[in-house]
Amino acid sequence: MEIDKELLKHVANVARLKLTDSELNKFLPQLKEVMEAFSRLEDVDTSKTVSSIQPVALRNVMREDKPGKCLGQEDALSQTKLKENGYFKGPKIV
């Protein structure tokens, strides 16, 4: 399958990464080679196989819908300089 510079730029943009020209030129042949090699998975017959999201049998677990102790505001804000008046500060949306 064809992976070109434009597709790579698009994927990086979706992943919120801005690659330099040097990174684009380095990553493109590497990712092409890897995805080409990985496409050999199509040789495996999985026509009667279900997907494995987890490696062991797990059941979904729920807890009681009861309020409890949670992280306080001061603690929650303690890990960043980007805060103001008890709120996290972030970039503008629009």
Partner: peptide
Amino acid sequence: TFARMVGYRDAFYLKALKVRTR
């Protein structure tokens, strides 16, 4: 990101989940 994208996820991500089972 690529492996999960529309147009590629069937051949890559979803296929890998089934090969994992095998």
